[in-house]
Lab assay of single mutants.
Amino acid sequence: ENVFHPVECSYCHSESMMGFRYRCQQCHNYQLCQDCFWRGHAGGSHSNQHQMKEYTSWKS
């Protein structure tokens, strides 16, 4: 089941984030949609070496 997250992806700027959401544990307010995370995208001061937390629902 695809879950809708009402936040913007920090890389592709999609405002309709579906599926899993990934939030960086080091960068303030840096979040990736499932597609950008799986493709290994990073931007700004974010590094792929940073720990990311996976969210499967909006409330989590």
Rank of each mutant, 00 (worst) to 15 (best):
Glu1Cys: 15
Glu1Arg: 03
Glu1Ser: 06
Glu1Asp: 12
Glu1Val: 05
Asn2Met: 13
Asn2Gln: 12
Asn2Val: 08
Asn2Gly: 12
Val3Thr: 14
Val3Pro: 13
Val3Tyr: 12
Phe4Thr: 13
Phe4Gly: 11
Phe4Asp: 14
Phe4Val: 11
Phe4Trp: 05
His5Gln: 06
His5Arg: 06
His5Ile: 15
His5Ala: 06
Pro6Arg: 10
Pro6Cys: 07
Pro6Trp: 08
Pro6Gln: 06
Pro6Ala: 13
Pro6Tyr: 05
Pro6Thr: 11
Val7Ala: 13
Glu8Arg: 05
Glu8His: 09
Glu8Leu: 05
Glu8Ile: 08
Glu8Trp: 03
Cys9Leu: 00
Cys9Trp: 00
Cys9Gly: 00
Cys9His: 00
Ser10Met: 04
Ser10Arg: 02
Ser10Thr: 07
Ser10Ile: 02
Ser10Gly: 03
Tyr11Val: 06
Tyr11Leu: 04
Tyr11Trp: 07
Tyr11Ser: 05
Tyr11Ala: 06
Tyr11Asn: 05
Tyr11Glu: 07
Tyr11His: 10
Cys12Phe: 00
Cys12Gln: 00
His13Lys: 10
His13Asp: 02
His13Val: 03
His13Glu: 05
Ser14Leu: 07
Ser14Gln: 07
Ser14Met: 07
Ser14Ala: 09
Glu15Ala: 10
Glu15Tyr: 05
Glu15His: 13
Glu15Thr: 12
Ser16Ile: 14
Ser16Cys: 08
Met17Arg: 11
Met17Ala: 10
Met17Asn: 12
Met17Ser: 14
Met17Tyr: 06
Met17Pro: 11
Met18Asp: 14
Met18Thr: 13
Met18Asn: 14
Met18Glu: 14
Gly19Pro: 12
Gly19Val: 08
Gly19His: 11
Phe20Trp: 14
Phe20Asn: 15
Arg21Tyr: 03
Arg21Leu: 12
Arg21Met: 13
Arg21Cys: 08
Arg21Ile: 08
Arg21His: 15
Arg21Asp: 03
Tyr22Gly: 01
Tyr22Arg: 05
Tyr22Lys: 05
Tyr22Asn: 03
Arg23Lys: 14
Arg23Phe: 10
Arg23Thr: 11
Arg23Ala: 09
Arg23Ile: 09
Arg23Val: 13
Cys24Gln: 02
Cys24Thr: 01
Cys24Phe: 00
Cys24His: 00
Cys24Val: 01
Cys24Ile: 01
Cys24Gly: 01
Gln25His: 06
Gln25Leu: 10
Gln25Thr: 11
Gln25Ser: 07
Gln26Pro: 02
Gln26Ser: 10
Gln26Asp: 15
Gln26Tyr: 05
Gln26Gly: 05
Cys27Gly: 02
Cys27Asp: 01
Cys27His: 01
Cys27Thr: 00
His28Phe: 08
His28Val: 13
His28Thr: 14
His28Gly: 08
His28Asn: 14
Asn29Ser: 09
Asn29Ile: 04
Asn29Cys: 15
Tyr30Thr: 03
Tyr30Leu: 03
Tyr30Phe: 06
Tyr30Gly: 02
Tyr30Arg: 04
Tyr30Pro: 01
Gln31Phe: 14
Gln31Ser: 11
Gln31Tyr: 10
Gln31Arg: 04
Gln31Gly: 08
Gln31Leu: 07
Gln31Lys: 04
Gln31Trp: 14
Gln31Glu: 14
Leu32Glu: 03
Leu32Tyr: 03
Cys33Ile: 00
Cys33Ser: 01
Cys33Gly: 01
Gln34Arg: 10
Gln34Lys: 14
Gln34Phe: 03
Gln34Met: 04
Gln34Gly: 10
Gln34Cys: 01
Asp35Lys: 11
Asp35His: 11
Asp35Thr: 12
Asp35Pro: 12
Asp35Ile: 08
Cys36Thr: 00
Cys36Leu: 01
Cys36Lys: 06
Phe37Val: 10
Phe37Ala: 10
Phe37Tyr: 09
Phe37Cys: 02
Phe37Gly: 04
Trp38Met: 15
Trp38Arg: 15
Trp38Asp: 15
Trp38His: 11
Trp38Gln: 15
Arg39Gln: 14
Arg39Met: 09
Arg39Val: 06
Arg39Thr: 08
Arg39Ile: 04
Arg39Cys: 09
Gly40Gln: 04
Gly40Cys: 05
Gly40Glu: 04
His41Gln: 14
His41Glu: 08
His41Trp: 04
His41Arg: 13
His41Pro: 06
His41Thr: 03
His41Ser: 12
His41Cys: 11
His41Tyr: 08
His41Leu: 10
Ala42Met: 10
Ala42Phe: 13
Ala42Gly: 10
Ala42Lys: 05
Ala42Arg: 10
Ala42Val: 11
Ala42His: 12
Gly43Glu: 13
Gly43Asp: 15
Gly43Thr: 07
Gly43Lys: 07
Gly43Ala: 04
Gly43Val: 04
Gly43Ile: 01
Gly44Val: 05
Gly44Cys: 03
Gly44Asp: 13
Ser45Ile: 03
Ser45Ala: 08
Ser45Leu: 07
Ser45Gln: 08
His46Arg: 06
His46Thr: 05
His46Lys: 08
His46Val: 05
His46Leu: 03
His46Ser: 06
Ser47Gln: 10
Ser47Trp: 09
Ser47Met: 04
Asn48Trp: 02
Asn48Leu: 05
Asn48Asp: 10
Asn48Cys: 09
Asn48Gln: 09
Asn48Thr: 10
Asn48Ala: 11
Gln49Phe: 07
Gln49Lys: 07
Gln49Cys: 09
Gln49Asp: 14
His50Ile: 02
His50Gln: 02
His50Ser: 02
His50Ala: 02
His50Tyr: 02
His50Asn: 02
His50Val: 01
Gln51Thr: 12
Gln51Ile: 11
Gln51Cys: 07
Met52Glu: 02
Met52Asp: 02
Met52Phe: 11
Met52Lys: 01
Lys53Met: 08
Lys53Gly: 05
Lys53Cys: 07
Lys53Asp: 07
Lys53Ala: 07
Lys53Tyr: 05
Lys53Gln: 12
Tyr55Arg: 08
Tyr55Cys: 15
Tyr55Phe: 07
Tyr55His: 07
Thr56Pro: 14
Thr56Trp: 02
Thr56Ile: 05
Thr56His: 10
Thr56Met: 07
Thr56Gly: 12
Thr56Ala: 12
Ser57Gly: 10
Ser57Trp: 06
Ser57Asn: 04
Ser57Tyr: 03
Ser57Pro: 15
Trp58Asp: 15
Trp58Thr: 15
Trp58Phe: 10
Trp58His: 14
Lys59Tyr: 08
Lys59Thr: 12
Lys59Gln: 14
Lys59Pro: 10
Lys59Ser: 14
Ser60Tyr: 06
Ser60Ile: 02
Ser60Asp: 15
